[in-house]
Structure formats: structure tokens, C-alpha cells
Simulated scan of single mutants.
Amino acid sequence: MGHLVRKLEHFVRLSPADRAVLSRAAAERVRNLGPRLDIVREGERPKSVNLILAGWACRYKQLEDGRRQIVSFFLPGDICDLNVFILREMDHSIGTITSVTIADLSREFFGEITAGYPRIATAFWWESLVNSAIQREWTMSLGQRTAFERMAHLLCEIFLRLQMAGLTHDNGCEFPLTQSDLADATGLSKVHVNRTLQELRSAELIVLKGKSLTVPSLDRLMNAGLFNPNYLHMDREGRHLDSNE
């Protein structure tokens, strides 16, 4: 839960009572899933909102012939779908990348938040706005950025999102994505992904070793990806409420 709280506090200053209700909700209905499994499939009726407590997951669409498009990555502290209760059935699937620990947040929890915890509700609105902004950037990447720019942009985004959740160390972070995952997310072939990663390595913009990513100079990688971090709202411009602690 600490990752979620740390991220939300980029948007709104949370009180001890806010943190306590989030921690309680996250501990009530927890389950563990292995890697490369579906959390919920397209066509199923959603029963709860999934909060990723640990591990990585993704949202994806898949064609009948097996071709898959990853449309977003979920990192620790991410809420998969804040508005999922309005759906009669899922129009996409959510699957694990690594082993994950998930908290299932109930409809009643969100009713409680709306009625009694306005700071959390505001932070969730910011979370939704940032997720929409991320989708716009992914569309821009698929339509306009070169393969080199596209990959650099995605790596910048993942690194900064992990940083917001307190999951980076110096200039490095966990990075369990395979080249197939990156291909499905960027619309490139696996061969093109491999070539692009080699170009980024040769330019000394990244170091990929095992399941870890090191970014020697984030500014240089941001320049390579034409990356403007404003859409992540890391400047805490949403922290406009008094904490009343």
C-alpha cells in the first residue's frame, strides 16, 4: 500500500486517516497470482477494482489469431480500473507479467471514499487523469515517434512512474519486461525491438542486465525520446488541499 500512498501524494496531501483507510482496504481481500496469467479476461463481468500491491501486470487486447496489443503497464501501486463497476463486461483483458499480489477493492470501499474521504477521492481523480494522459502519449508514440524515440519514451515513462512510487534506486530499477512485451506495447517486431535496444545501448542511454534497467543520464534519454514529463503531473500541482492533520 505504501507505493499507492506515495504516488497519490504527488497529487494530494493525505492525512493519517486517509492513509489508514487505504491500508485497511488493501489488506481485506488480497490474492497472489503467478506470472503470465489473466487477472480478468475480456468478456467477463468485473467484480472488483484491482490494486497492484506487488509485481507487474498489463492491460491488453487480443485478436482471434493471437496477435496482442499491450495498451498499458501496471506497476506496484497502480489501480487497474477505477470505473470498472459501470461495465457489464470487460472490453479488454488484464494479465500478469510477473508474479503479483493484488488487493480487490470493493464497490463499498469506493462509496465510503466518496462519502467521507474527499482527499482520497481527489487523488483518484488525478490518477484517472494521468492514466488518460498516458494513453494519449502512447497513441502519439504509435502514430508519430520513430522506433528509437518510441522505445526511449516508454523507458523514460516507466522509470519515472517507478520513481513516483518509490521503486527506483539511484539511476536503476527493476525491469522484468521481455522483448516480446516491448514489441506488443510499441507496435514493433521483436527483431526491431532488439535492434532498437542495441541502438540505445550503443548510445550509452541505457544498460539492461538481467531484469534490471539502469539509466546513466535520464536527461539524455528524455531528449532521445522527445519526452516531456508534464503529462505525469509529477510537479505536485494537484496538492492544493489542506491536510487538516
Rank of each mutant, 00 (worst) to 15 (best):
D91S: 12
S99V: 13
D81C: 01
G55S: 06
L53K: 04
L63R: 11
Q62K: 11
D104C: 06
R59E: 12
L51P: 05
G95R: 15
P76S: 03
C58Y: 12
T101W: 03
C80E: 10
T101Q: 13
I52R: 02
Q62W: 12
G43D: 06
C80I: 13
R45C: 09
L37N: 08
G77Y: 00
D81K: 11
P76C: 00
D91F: 14
F73K: 06
D78R: 02
V84P: 08
F74P: 02
E89I: 03
V71L: 10
A54K: 13
L37K: 13
A103Q: 02
D65E: 06
D65R: 12
W56R: 10
L51I: 08
T101I: 07
N83D: 12
R88K: 15
G95D: 11
L53T: 11
L63F: 09
E64V: 11
E44G: 05
D38L: 12
E89P: 13
C58I: 05
C80W: 00
N50C: 08
D91V: 11
N83H: 14
M90E: 04
S99P: 14
D91Q: 09
I52E: 05
A57S: 14
N50I: 07
T98A: 10
L82W: 03
G66N: 10
S93V: 03
R59Y: 08
I102Y: 03
P46R: 00
F74T: 00
I39T: 00
T101L: 06
W56F: 15
R45D: 07
C58K: 15
I39C: 05
K61P: 01
N50K: 11
D65W: 11
E64N: 10
K47I: 01
F73M: 00
F74C: 13
Q69E: 10
K47S: 13
C58M: 12
F73N: 02
G66P: 01
G95L: 04
N50L: 12
Q62G: 04
I86Y: 12
A57N: 03
D38V: 06
T98C: 12
E44D: 05
D91T: 09
P76I: 01
A54F: 09
D65C: 10
L75S: 11
G66R: 07
D65F: 01
C80K: 07
G43S: 05
G55C: 02
Y60N: 12
K61D: 09
R68N: 01
S72V: 08
Y60V: 09
G55M: 02
D91Y: 11
